[in-house]
């Protein structure tokens, strides 16, 4: 017998109150409890990145996050990136660059790209940043490294890098 715990979470601007079993991941809370299926379940073990969302502004893996531990948090999925019916620049760039094939990994790729571009703008280095003390320029090698946590089994990587590059320099 498991006791559920009340919590609230804001997803794409809308607040939800729910009771959760402590075992419920944020991913399962989104998909199974709130019916928000934009966020995809791939490996469910933190290896593929399909479940990436922005949690309080940072890209994280919702499959390795317990919902109960994020009471009061703000989550943005790929759906919530649009404003006033206008697609987010990263989403536009994915369309313009044909940066997907089957599309299953795309919501996670887009959330991850938004997070990665923001991290670079805040000056956060990566493993391929030549000078750790210098500013970061998002070239193709930096983008590939920063997006390495998002797998695409269709291997649309070349166009994904192009899309992120275009969005980053817009």
């Amino acid at each position: 017998m498991t006791t559920t715990i009340p919590m609230s979470i804001t997803v794409d601007g809308e607040r939800h109150d729910l009771d959760v079993d402590p075992r419920t991941t944020l991913l399962d809370a989104l998909r199974e409890r709130l019916g928000i299926t934009t966020t995809k379940k791939g490996c469910d073990h933190g290896q593929c990145g399909a479940c990436t969302v922005l949690l309080d502004g940072r890209r994280v893996l919702s499959c390795l996050t317990l919902a109960v531990a994020k009471d009061g948090a703000h989550v943005v999925t790929a759906d919530g990136l649009a404003t006033d019916g206008e697609l987010h620049p990263v989403t536009e760039a994915f369309l313009a660059n044909d940066a997907y094939q089957c599309g299953y990994c795309t919501p996670g790729q887009i959330c991850s790209a938004v997070g990665a571009i923001d991290e670079a703008r805040r000056g956060m280095p990566s493993a391929v940043t030549a000078d750790l003390a210098a500013d970061v320029t998002l070239d193709r090698s930096e983008i590939a490294e920063r997006m390495s946590g998002n797998l695409c089994r269709c291997a649309a990587y070349v166009n994904i890098v192009s899309a992120v590059e275009e969005a980053a320099h817009r």
Partner: peptide, 16 residues
């Protein structure tokens, strides 16, 4: 220290 962290995991995991 910075180089070791950046060599591990992914951007999402390092945020968590």
């Amino acid at each position: 220290v910075a180089a070791a962290i950046l060599a591990g995991a992914s951007g999402q995991l390092r945020n968590m």
